[in-house]
Design a protein around this nucleic acid. Sequence first.
DNA 1: AAGATAGTGTAGTCTACACTACACATCGAA
DNA 2: TTCGATGTGTAGTGTAGACTACACTATCTT
Lengths: 218, 218
Amino acid sequence: MSPSLPKDSPPTTERGRQRRDALLDAAQQLFLERGYGQVSVNDIVGRAGGSLSTLYRHFGNKEGLFQAMIERRSHHIYGTLTDEGVDELTIEAALQRLGIELLVKVMDEETLGIYREVVAESPRQSQLARLFFDGGPGRVRLALADYFERRVQRQLMPACDTVELAGAFLGMLLGEWHLIRVLQLESPPSRTAIENRVTRCVDLFLHGVQGRPSRRSQ
Amino acid sequence: MSPSLPKDSPPTTERGRQRRDALLDAAQQLFLERGYGQVSVNDIVGRAGGSLSTLYRHFGNKEGLFQAMIERRSHHIYGTLTDEGVDELTIEAALQRLGIELLVKVMDEETLGIYREVVAESPRQSQLARLFFDGGPGRVRLALADYFERRVQRQLMPACDTVELAGAFLGMLLGEWHLIRVLQLESPPSRTAIENRVTRCVDLFLHGVQGRPSRRSQ
DNA sequence: AAGATAGTGTAGTCTACACTACACATCGAA
DNA sequence: TTCGATGTGTAGTGTAGACTACACTATCTT
């Protein structure tokens, strides 16, 4: 009766966990290298070692494996933005710090790969979209909105729809850069290019186009 | 010697043009419905009518057909943003008009579909990315940058990197909305929701967070 | 009318790959 | 030591689908 656990049962033994992780690691590498549709389950087993049967026992099918992989990564990537002591900083410094950290993460090849794969597969795997958004971009937006909310409470900022405002700031920050990197039209920006962009975005966000008399091109 | 034109020769006869267009139309419908990888060339011929051989004569292979389709659509979609008399408007009005037109186009299901497919396939078809970007989003950015440039010339705006500024405005406008729609996490925004968002974005862009004393949530 | 040019229709080749079957190995707990 | 759960390995099966071959037709030009 053993080979008929149809679904994703959490691994009980230590060895089970190891095999599961090895499969997820291999899947991640391959999916990001070549794309979901271009990777076969045999490729994955080939890289992970072990057996095809094990893959199917753990994840049920190829989609299950893919979703498990995406969930793990988006949590990991976006879960590590520091939030410590942000309320003690000026808003300039806080946005600057968040902005740099975020841009560095988002411009990373792995993060871009995850984004591409999710966009590509989401029309056929609808849970995937939620999984990714809530674990990733949506979380960042909420964290920033919370920060704005606290500032509103302390009368440091006019009341507004803080979630929308957070979205606007983040959108401005990524701007066309994100698309350009997703499409691989330019090579990755340097650390200082990122810092410069964030500085100008923060300035624009806080004071608007007309707020500051001159802003030279980089 | 007829069946050995390996590449995409422009159609000479009227009938040739019709058949070519019919193939492109069918390809577009199917690719956007199901995604590139999920559509077979036979499906396309099935919908377009005509013959598989004709498809290969015109486009060489499946990728060629896809690229021709993307190029045609991105030009069409983004090519129709009105630019007339924009220099006679206030900057508020100009940005408002552009913003609404753009958001309506970008939130459209067809446009989102094109975006998804390009992102999905670009790692394997690198010309595709350029084709799409230059014909689409890049064009809009340049048009807006030109507008800013003219304002700088007329001393209505401080000098700056106008291309970057345009990118920032457009990014702010799309913000997280675009991703949410790409992933189909929410239903399409109404016309008035779009108008409201554009209004707040223009205001934020021009005056910054602190520029205006109060901005109520929508 | 004859030959080039483009379109049609069918049938077929070849390969890739998701998923299954089945027999056997390992190992920890009772 | 044996039982149950889990992992391994191999060898399928079935299907889908990109691309080609080929014999034929329609149209246009000179």
